[in-house]
Simulated assay, not measured.
Amino acid sequence: MRPLRIGVIGSGEAAAGDADLAHAVGAALARAGAIVVCGGMGGVMRAAADGACSEGGTVVGILPGGDAGAAAGGVTIPIPTGLGEARNVVVARASEAVIAIAGEWGTLSEAAFCRKFGVPVIGLASSLPEGVVEEVADGPAQAASRALKLAEARRELSRRRRVNA
């Protein structure tokens, strides 16, 4: 069975506390065997990638530009898209659940695409408007745990639909 793909979205310039949360989330996801999907650049994305990398995890960075070398150090698989902010759609589609940490307009767009595509969004220290985040987690461990459970449920539902089609 393929590993679950959990997105971590948030500000490209994260405050220290938000970066600490993202690092802990990335580490928890890697320990659980999930692949971390992110925008591959700075702030929350870098911290989540570094956290996952510190635990030997795999991080897919969906980059806005065309240069794979621009990816944050913890990104193990950089995907240069050349799409700019439109790469947010790819982050949403590539994720089976998403954890939103802090963030502003770009994070809001990623979360909105997730909701449109049926991808669960867990908030952690998130400033996203009510209704965008499906659940709010108390800490990194709970955010990772809930995202993994919701991704598993989503994958199982998808499998059942394919079998019954």
Rank of each mutant, 00 (worst) to 15 (best):
E104P: 02
A125Q: 08
S95V: 05
A125P: 05
P120M: 09
V98S: 07
E110V: 12
R115L: 13
G123L: 08
E110W: 00
E110K: 05
V98R: 00
A111M: 04
G103N: 07
G118D: 14
A97P: 07
A112M: 14
A102P: 02
S109R: 14
P120A: 11
A97F: 07
I101V: 13
F117W: 13
G103T: 06
G106F: 11
A112C: 14
F117M: 15
F113S: 13
R115Y: 10
S109V: 15
W105F: 15
S127A: 11
S126E: 02
R115T: 10
P120E: 08
I101T: 05
G103F: 02
F117C: 06
A102G: 13
V119F: 10
S95L: 07
L128Y: 00
A112I: 07
P120L: 12
G118S: 12
A102N: 10
G118T: 12
L124F: 06
G103P: 07
P120I: 11
C114G: 11
A112T: 15
G123M: 03
P129R: 03
E104Y: 12
A125V: 03
E96C: 07
P129F: 04
V119C: 10
I122F: 01
L108R: 10
F117S: 09
S109C: 15
A112V: 13
I99Y: 01
A125K: 04
